[in-house]
């Protein structure tokens, strides 16, 4: 039953992606990408990644959509030009895709328990997390305790991106205030 739900959700994801590729209206594309993120969050719940699903639903479907809509408000355009079908990109994409699918055929099938990635450090995290950190949620204990430095690096990235956005958009307000509208005629 769960495997069936998984297949259905993944098929829906593919359908929504095709709709995004074919969509000319930017507003519709943004809303479709919000739907895409919610479907992705559902798939992640089926794959037992509940923490990732919550983050994807709040950050991917929430913040990303809001930021995209704010940009559409700033650029005041909602239609993209119609894309004439391009042969070369399609050819490259199909070729690369075929290679990647061929490469995944050697991966263990869905749900294999004796997969090599479950053998190395993971049993230690699962067995010792209560004893060493007292946190039952293993994802939290690894993120905030065992690998706390990575999370520090992550916040540095967000800080840098925030400074970049402030510099790019803050100058805009100053220019329009001093009378010279930076927009081209």
């Amino acid at each position: 039953m769960i495997a069936f739900i998984n297949v259905a959700l993944l098929t829906l994801l593919a359908v929504v992606t095709v709709a995004i590729v074919r969509q000319r209206s930017l507003f519709a594309a943004v809303i479709l990408s919000g739907i895409y993120s919610f479907l992705m969050a559902s798939v992640l719940i089926v794959l037992d990644a509940v923490d990732v699903a919550m983050t994807e639903a709040s950050v991917g479907a929430g913040i990303s959509t809001v930021v995209l809509l704010a940009t559409l408000h700033l650029i005041k355009t909602t239609e993209s030009r119609s894309v004439r079908p391009r042969i070369l990109p399609m050819f490259v994409v199909l070729g690369t895709g075929a290679f990647l699918v061929w490469g995944t055929l050697v991966m263990p099938p869905y749900g294999t328990a004796d997969n090599i990635i479950h053998k190395h450090v993971v049993p230690r995290y699962i067995n010792d997390t209560i004893k060493e950190t007292g946190v039952p949620n293993i994802v939290t204990s690894v993120l905030a305790d065992y690998r706390g430095y990575d999370t520090l690096g992550e916040t540095t990235v967000i800080f840098t991106a925030g400074i970049g956005v402030m510099l790019l958009l803050g100058g805009r307000r100053r220019r329009t205030k001093s009378g010279q509208d930076g927009r081209s005629p």
């Binding site: 983050t55 995209l68 993120l143």
Partner: peptide
């Protein structure tokens, strides 16, 4: 396996940061 979940949790947050920078 909890380890991929941890890695991707970081990737989602970094992804939205790069998206915001690109849109700016």
């Amino acid at each position: 396996n909890p380890l991929p979940h941890v890695l991707i949790l970081t990737a989602i947050v970094v992804g939205v940061a790069t998206l915001a920078l690109g849109l700016a």
